[in-house]
């Protein structure tokens, strides 16, 4: 693998930061190791680990936080309402066991949405975040057809009052972007923050490629799985206790 200068700097910065800082502070500092001037690189891969056993039935802290953070309008028909993250209730057909878990864009390493997108508007950022470049999205909805997790929605109406950090508008497709504007500032996604504050502490966010990060350690030592593993999409959102 050959690194260009920028990648090299990013890796160097990450190494320095991880060496210098106390474990609890690492996440924030890590993201800040990339200056606003530097492009994201594949030295990192952002991911979320969901511990479903901690996800309480009836809790929707993550959902409300997402709606608020991204300014998702709630005053529209349910069948066209944007839901970047949703809680899903599962009941086992055989045993009747019930559990709930959050579903969102799984940030596939091999995203079918990006494969089918005719213009390249759906794409995977070098650090693993999958998002839509709304400037070139033509609103064909092919990505919605292709997504195996029903993770996307289409903006069906004119919008006003968007959040400054989260531009979105009619005629384009959208989905969870892992709060990319926050991650670029070195902060964690709103859902993760809310879950750890108000919820069951079921969500962990971090760099899956950094062996010292909590998420990487837990992925390495505990059982976890991706949803629809047979599709081999290598998702960035992993689940425990499915």
């Amino acid at each position: 693998m050959s690194l260009d200068r920028r990648q090299f700097l990013a890796v160097g910065g990450a190494v320095l930061a991880s060496a210098a800082l106390a474990p609890g502070m690492r996440l924030v500092e890590l993201a800040e190791a990339r200056s606003p001037d530097q492009a994201v690189t594949n030295a990192q891969r952002w991911g979320i680990l969901v511990d479903t056993t901690r996800c309480a039935e009836g809790c929707s802290a993550c959902v409300s936080a997402c709606n608020k953070e991204n300014g998702l309008q709630q005053n529209v028909r349910l069948d066209i309402r944007p839901q970047w993250i949703r809680t899903v209730t599962l009941q086992d057909e055989q045993t009747g066991y019930v559990q709930t878990l959050p579903m969102m864009c799984q940030h596939c390493e091999e995203p079918p949405c990006a494969d089918v997108c005719p213009t390249g508007a759906s794409f995977r950022r070098a650090d693993g975040i999958v998002l839509v470049d709304r400037h070139i999205c033509i609103g064909c909805r092919y990505c919605m057809m292709a997504c195996p997790y029903k993770a996307r929605s289409f903006v069906h109406e004119n919008l006003t009052g968007q959040r400054a950090d989260v531009p979105r508008g009619k005629g384009t497709v959208e989905g969870c972007n892992m709060c990319v504007h926050r991650v670029d500032e070195g902060r964690i996604p709103a859902c993760v923050e809310a879950c750890n504050y108000d919820g069951g502490k079921a969500l962990t966010f971090g760099d899956m490629r950094d062996p010292a990060s909590e998420i990487a350690k837990r992925l390495a030592t505990q059982q976890s799985e991706e949803i629809r593993p047979n599709l081999n999409l290598d998702t960035g959102v992993r689940y425990q206790g499915l």
Partner: peptide
């Protein structure tokens, strides 16, 4: 029927060659 028919020019100029849609154009 596109969400952004006015961006047809984008569809004609920006291609993702992995997409069968783009091939179809």
């Amino acid at each position: 029927d596109l969400g952004k028919p006015d961006r047809l020019i984008v569809a004609m100029t920006t291609y993702n060659f992995k997409s069968i849609f783009a091939w179809n154009i």
